[in-house]
Simulated assay, not measured.
Amino acid sequence: MLLEISNVTKQFGGLIAVNDVSMEVNEGEIVSVIGPNGAGKTTLFNCVTGVYTPERGKILYKKDGVVRDIVGVPAHKIAYLGISRTFQNIRLFKNMTVLENVLVGRHSKLKSKVWEILLTLPAFIKEEKESVRLARNLLDFVGLLNRESEISVNLPYGLQRKLEIARALASEPKILLLDEPAAGMNPSETEELIRLIKKIREMGVTIILIEHDMSLVMKLSEKIIVLDFGQKIAEGSPVEIRNNPRVIEAYLGKEEAEIA
């Protein structure tokens, strides 16, 4: 077990967005969370990453052999512990260059003190050079090294998605959460994304993704969790989910299940 979500409930006033959801993610897995709009998928991600604190439940994370409950831990500390994410709506620093955006993702790993930065001491200079080297390696990994000096907002949409993934990887996560990474992509870009996600898993990163593209979900996932109205209604392999009558009724529909 790398991450265990146990009986997590999150509500906003009278609305229960996530209702008693439990799931387990093992190291090296690709796990997809699917369901209709408003099912609670992004709210669940926000609970895992410290954006929201659930009213009930535990979120257990294992690092270096130690299991801890990260409920209530601030988002920046969760990133430092090794859980990173992208967002459904791209959140790049639009007026920064491609390279600068990735360098921002390194922030949680920097160790230089304020006075070392202000005085431009050798320790800071060394760390800065190493950060640039690692950032360029990540840009090369996602196919953006030749565009490192461009302003990020000028990139085509599909490349902005790749840049956001590179920035999330800059913090050297053990778990990467991808919120609808294929949204707005054409079929060619989606196939590239599938290859990229497989490469990320080969790096030793565990991946949890929210996605509406069922072809991508079925190709990538070892395990699929299905939410509906905040509750988990199914969990299983792609074959099991494709043939689950409750999932077909609530989300896939007969035609979509046959295509998937």
Score class of each variant (00 low, 15 high):
3 L>F: 08
3 L>R: 01
8 V>S: 05
15 L>P: 02
16 I>M: 03
25 V>Y: 01
37 N>L: 08
41 K>P: 14
42 T>P: 12
42 T>C: 10
43 T>V: 10
53 T>V: 13
56 R>M: 12
66 V>S: 13
66 V>E: 15
70 I>L: 07
72 G>M: 06
76 H>A: 01
78 I>A: 01
83 I>W: 02
85 R>W: 03
93 F>D: 00
93 F>T: 02
93 F>N: 03
97 T>V: 05
98 V>K: 00
98 V>H: 02
109 K>D: 07
109 K>V: 07
113 K>N: 13
117 I>A: 10
118 L>Y: 04
120 T>W: 05
123 A>V: 15
123 A>K: 15
128 E>Y: 15
132 V>Q: 13
133 R>S: 15
145 L>V: 14
146 N>K: 15
152 S>V: 05
157 Y>V: 04
163 L>W: 01
165 I>Y: 01
167 R>P: 11
172 E>P: 00
177 L>H: 08
178 L>I: 10
183 A>L: 12
186 N>L: 13
187 P>K: 12
190 T>G: 13
192 E>W: 00
193 L>I: 11
194 I>H: 00
197 I>Y: 06
197 I>R: 06
206 T>R: 07
210 I>P: 12
218 M>E: 14
221 S>T: 05
226 V>D: 09
228 D>Y: 15
235 E>K: 07
243 N>S: 14
255 E>F: 00
257 A>G: 10
258 E>S: 03
